[in-house]
Design a protein around this nucleic acid. Structure first.
Lengths: 226, 226
DNA sequence: GCCTTTGGTAAACGAACGTTTACTGAAAGG
DNA sequence: CCTTTCAGTAAACGTTCGTTTACCAAAGGC
C-alpha cells in the first residue's frame, strides 16, 4: 500500500500537556455533551432550534463539522437528545419537591418560588422546551408533548400520594395536572423573558402566576365528577 | 378587455398569466400578500418560521428573490406583518362571537366548538402564533405576546359587558382571561396536530378542553378578592 | 404624449451550508 | 507487542444562501 505524502504538522495546535485522563468512551460522551451544549447556547442567544445550522453547532462545540456524524445522524436526532435531557430536568423538579416536601401553608406560593428557581437554574432547558413545543420540527414537538404528558401523570400520582384533592377521580386529576403543566410552561417563557434586576416586574409576574394556580385549585376543590 | 402578458423570448418559466386589471398599488399589495402566504404555507409543511430562508419564501410566492426587498427589509419584518395579520384573525373570533352571541346554556362547549372551527378555518395563522410565541426571534415573540395581551383585555371587557362573573375585580378578571388565553392557544396546537378523520381523538381533545375551561370558570365563580 | 416612478427581473458575488471522502493517531484489546 | 478500532480531522464537492447591481416595462402624473 502506497502512503501518500503526509504533511508534517505546521505550527502545532497540539498543546504540550494535552493529556486527558479520560477513557475513550468518556471523551466521546463529553464531545456529545459539547454538541448539545453548543446548540443550547446558540438558542440562548435568541435563536430557534430549527434555525440552527449543523456547522454552527459544531463550531460552538469546538469540533469540525464532520465530527457531528460520529454522534448524531442529523440535527433532529440531536434535538431529540435535548428533549430527553430537558425532560430529565423537568422530572428532577418533581423529585426535589418530593424529597423536600412542601409546607402545607402557603403551598402554592412556595411551589411557584421553587419552580422559578428551577427554571432560572436550568434556563436553557426550559427555553428549549418552551420554544420547541409549539413550533419547530414535528418529531421534536411530539417528543416534548410526550415528556409533558409523563410529567403531568407523575404529578397527578404525587398528588394522590399526598392525599390532596381526594374527591377527584384519577381522570379529573390528570386533566387538572395537564392544565397546571400548560400554565407552568407558559410561565417559564415569561420568567425567561424577564429583564434582569427588575424586582417590580418579577413580583408582578410571580403574583399573577400564583393567582392563576390558586384559581385553578379553587376550581378543582369545588369540582364534582358526575 | 383582457390583456395577456406575453412570455419573454426564451423558454419560459413564465406562467401564462391572464391579465390583471389591478392598479399598481393593488398589484403591490397582492405580491406582498403572496410573500406572506408563501411563508405561512412553508410553515404549514412543518417548518418553523425561523428556519425559513428568504429565497424559499420568494420561491413559494412566485417572485424573484430581489423582489422581496420591495416589500420588507428582512424576514423579521415579514414575521411582524404576520403577527399583525394573525392578531386580526384572533380578534375576529371575539367579534364573531360578540355578534352572534353565545347561548347561556352549555356556553363553554359551544364556545369551544366555535373556537375549534375558527382554528381549523385559519390553521396557518394559529400555527404561526402557537409556533412563534415560544421560540423564534425575540422581536416576533414579543409582538405576539402583545397581541395576546390585547386579546385577553378585550375578552375581559366583553365579559364585563355581558355581566358574567360580576363579583370579580377588573384585575382578577384580567388574570382569569390571561389563563384562558394560554389554555386556548395550547389547545390550538393540539387541534392542529390532530390526525385527520379521527373522531375519537377529536372528541377526547374537545372534552378535555371543555373540562379545563369548566374547572377554570368554576374556580372563578368561587373566587373572592380580598 | 412625454417623463418619472416603481414593482419585478436577471445576473452575479462571496459566504455559508450539508455531506462525503480519505486519513491520523491514540486508545483498546488480544 | 502488534493489530484493530474509532473519534476527530482536513479538504473538497455541489448547493443554497442573502444581497447588490443594472435594467426593463408598464402605470401614474402632468
Amino acid at each position: 500500500m502506497t502512503r501518500l505524502v503526509v504533511p508534517r504538522a505546521k505550527t502545532a495546535p497540539t498543546p504540550i500537556i494535552a493529556v486527558d485522563l479520560a477513557s475513550r468512551g468518556e471523551r466521546k460522551l463529553r464531545t456529545r455533551a459539547h454538541l448539545m451544549e453548543g446548540a443550547l447556547d446558540l438558542m440562548g442567544q435568541g435563536r430557534g432550534f430549527s434555525g440552527l445550522s449543523l456547522r454552527e453547532v459544531t463550531r460552538a462545540a469546538g469540533v469540525v463539522p464532520a465530527s457531528f456524524y460520529r454522534h448524531f445522524r442529523d440535527l433532529d436526532e440531536l434535538g431529540l437528545a435535548l428533549v430527553e435531557e430537558s425532560g430529565a430536568t423537568l422530572r428532577r423538579l418533581l423529585r426535589d419537591v418530593r424529597r423536600d416536601g412542601i409546607p402545607l401553608t402557603d403551598m402554592l406560593r412556595k411551589s411557584v418560588q421553587i419552580y422559578k428557581q428551577h427554571v432560572e437554574a436550568h434556563r436553557l432547558h426550559f427555553l428549549f422546551i418552551a420554544g420547541e413545543r409549539g413550533g419547530g420540527a414535528p418529531v421534536i414537538r411530539k417528543a416534548i408533548r410526550t415528556e409533558e404528558s409523563h410529567f403531568a401523570s407523575e404529578m397527578a400520582q404525587d398528588m394522590r400520594a399526598l392525599g390532596l384533592l381526594p374527591g377527584l377521580s384519577s381522570e379529573t386529576l390528570r386533566m387538572l395536572c395537564g392544565l397546571v403543566v400548560t400554565t407552568m410552561i407558559n410561565a417559564a417563557t415569561e420568567i425567561l423573558d424577564l429583564p434582569r434586576q427588575q424586582p417590580r416586574l418579577e413580583k408582578e409576574l410571580v403574583d399573577n402566576f400564583v393567582r392563576q394556580l390558586r384559581l385553578v385549585f379553587l376550581g378543582a376543590s369545588a369540582w364534582r365528577d358526575r
